[in-house]
Design a protein around this nucleic acid. Structure first.
Length: 334
DNA sequence: CTTATTTGACCATG
DNA sequence: CATGGTCAAATAAG
């Protein structure tokens, strides 16, 4: 820091701008159009900021964002050592490689669209708040290696420093590359709450067909409970030109769970539980599915949203097909 | 019942 | 040996 390089200034302004946009969004949340636009703005700004950060981090090891590569390789690991649970953890790091798998960022909203399972928490020296450790829910049934560490910041308890380690290799419909057709048919129209308190959305069947898939009701601590119903995907796309595996059909999670069942149905929203305690102490929140903002316009339009990864693992680039609207996620970075 | 979280103990590393 | 990361038994939640 110290030297206010042009980069720093630009970054500062960008961040400020995004912050203001976020505030504006809150004020304009009653206008779907405005909200949508703001979403786009925010998304664009976030991307710009991330890109700049990544670029800067490559040149000089900045203190905020760092990208390394974890050579997890074919780390089978996970051998249950009965008594001496010794895990040799080889961490080879390579630098300058793209497709970084370690990213840290400061965010206010812990939701990131992935389902995490907390496996530990530690008090950290010089930090007021503990650090929470998460692994992908599908670590064992799908060998997903993604991990996340969350720590509330000392200076700004409203934000968390989140470190993402490893990329998701799971096929969680909520997180993996998958296309779904959803339909914004707010049951009452009122169901389509904007992100008043929570940022969940309600989807309903695209085909009017009442065979609505499972409706997992996510109850946020508050009175907001909405239903998520996702139709079977009509089409599956691969993300980012890379050859992506098959469809989400050959999933064989060992344990028969609601999630597995839902997946079999191609239902993405299965375990969408968004726990937002009145005051999450620190990262101890397990996130579920969320398409964040969704300003569905018409009542009969069907939208197709596609999730794909960024090289930075900045999850969800939601693209909407066949609809004027676009779903964008709001990312309250930094 | 199954699955998730909590939490102290254990382990690796510098 | 201090620190941070993970395990796993107990417990909570659904």
């Amino acid at each position: 820091m110290a030297a206010a390089a042009p980069y720093a200034r630009v970054m500062e302004d960008m961040v400020k701008g995004r912050e203001y946009a976020t505030q504006l969004q809150a004020l304009l949340r009653d206008s779907p159009e405005a909200g949508r636009l703001l979403d786009r703005i925010l998304h664009a700004m976030s991307r710009t900021i991330d890109t700049a950060k990544a670029a800067a981090a490559e040149e000089e090891e900045a203190s905020e964002v760092q990208s390394d590569v974890t050579c997890a390789g074919t780390a089978g690991s996970s051998k249950r050592k009965a008594a001496g649970g010794g895990d040799k953890r080889a961490s080879c790091r390579k630098r300058g490689q793209q497709g970084s798998s370690v990213v840290t960022k400061n965010i206010k909203d812990l939701e990131d669209g992935h389902s995490w399972r907390k496996y530990g928490q530690k008090e950290i020296q010089n930090s007021k708040y503990p650090k929470a450790y998460f692994r992908c829910t599908h670590k064992y049934d799908q060998q997903c290696v993604a991990q996340r560490q969350v720590q509330r910041r000392d200076d700004d308890p409203d934000t968390y420093t989140v470190t993402y380690i490893g990329m998701h290799t799971c096929r969680d419909p909520a997180t993996a590359v998958a296309s779904l057709v959803v339909h914004a048919a707010g049951v009452t129209g009122d169901d389509l709450h904007h992100h008043a308190g929570s940022r969940l959305i309600s989807f309903a069947a695209a085909n009017n067909n009442a065979s609505a898939a499972t409706t997992s009701t996510t109850t946020t601590g508050n009175t907001t409970n909405q239903q998520l119903a996702v139709l079977q995907p009509l089409k599956l796309e691969c993300g980012g030109g890379g050859e992506q595996e098959e469809v989400l059909s050959s999933l064989t999670p060992a344990g028969s769970s609601a999630a597995a069942e839902a997946m079999r149905n191609g239902n993405a929203a299965a375990a969408a539980a968004t726990t937002t305690g009145p005051e999450p102490d620190q990262g101890d929140v397990t996130s579920g599915l969320q398409l964040q903002q969704f300003y569905g316009a018409g009542d009969d339009l069907a939208y197709m949203a596609r999730f794909s990864y960024d090289d930075t693992f900045d999850l969800e680039d939601i693209v909407v097909f066949g609809a004027p609207d676009s779903i964008t996620d709001i990312y309250a970075d930094e």
